[in-house]
């Protein structure tokens, strides 16, 4: 019987802007264990093989959204992607696509951080605030719950071909989060000027890769298409109805 493989090769992107002319792949041999995620492999490299490797991580359980990377060409959370699924290897680990690289696997997310507050991702309430809790039925919560699961990991931006071509595009996660508050029964906010702009939902061509990449089942593509209908109906109303009858 052939001896079971006990290690796997990880090919990891190394890059220091300003020092290296271009990113290179460096190979490391790490233990192949059933319970080890790609992130455990990276931690093994950092702790035992090469302390100069840089990458982001925090919670190790798919909540913090820090450890998004390109694993064998696909955007993945490295804590939720297991080495055994890539055996016998090698498994290639690269930084998230569509973002500038700061070092090795660490990307610059400031573009997303600038766009996110533009959709006003918080409850905007008009009128009196109720005393005590603001009640909501389970049906009202179901309307937006899916979109509230976003962990801002940016795998959807990495997967989106429109964002790759048009960096101005507001992007899947930001629009889905705007929709999360639009669909909340406690919210009266108006996000139309941002969401219904040329850089908002109308830039999306419904490729759908964002929803495939999302590790939390948010379905940003669905959120965008739903908002397109809302925005198109509102635009028709603007065109057809007198000013007083709108809304």
């Amino acid at each position: 019987m052939a001896r079971k493989r006990t290690t796997i090769t990880m090919e990891v992107t190394r890059f220091r802007p300003g020092e290296d002319s271009e990113p290179t792949l460096q190979s490391y041999e790490v233990p192949l264990r059933k319970e080890w995620a790609v992130l455990d492999g990276l931690n093994h490299i950092k702790d035992h093989l090469d302390g100069t490797l840089s990458y982001r991580w925090s919670c190790r359980m798919g909540i913090c959204g820090s450890c998004g990377m390109t694993v064998n060409g696909k955007p993945q959370l490295s804590c939720a992607t297991f080495l055994v699924d890539y055996a016998p290897g090698p498994v290639r680990v690269e930084p998230l696509r569509n973002f500038p690289v700061i070092r090795d696997l660490v990307v610059d997310i400031s573009d997303f951080m600038t766009k996110l507050p533009k959709v006003k991702p918080w409850l905007i309430h008009e009128g009196e605030t109720p005393e005590g809790e603001f009640l909501q039925t389970p049906q009202e919560m179901d309307e937006y719950k899916k979109y509230s699961m976003c962990i801002n990991c940016m795998l959807c931006y990495s997967a989106c071909p429109v964002y790759a071509l048009e960096p101005e595009f507001l992007g899947p996660a930001a629009i889905a989060l705007g929709q999360r508050y639009n669909l909340d029964s406690r919210d009266d906010g108006d996000r139309r000027d941002v969401l219904a702009s040329a850089e908002g939902v109308w830039a999306c061509t419904f490729v759908g890769e964002c929803s495939t990449a999302c590790p939390k089942g948010v379905d940003p593509a669905g959120a965008i298409q739903r908002y397109k209908l809302t925005a198109a109906v509102a635009a028709l109303k603007d065109f057809l109805l007198p000013r007083g009858a709108r809304r």
């Binding site: 139309r192 000027d193 219904a196 040329a198 109308w202 397109k228 209908l229 925005a231 198109a232 635009a235």
Partner: peptide, 17 residues
């Protein structure tokens, strides 16, 4: 209203319909 007027909603409605 600062929003840029665009025919996109109309053509998108025709597209989706």
């Amino acid at each position: 209203m600062s929003r840029r007027r665009s025919p996109e909603p109309l053509v998108w409605l025709l597209f989706s319909g």
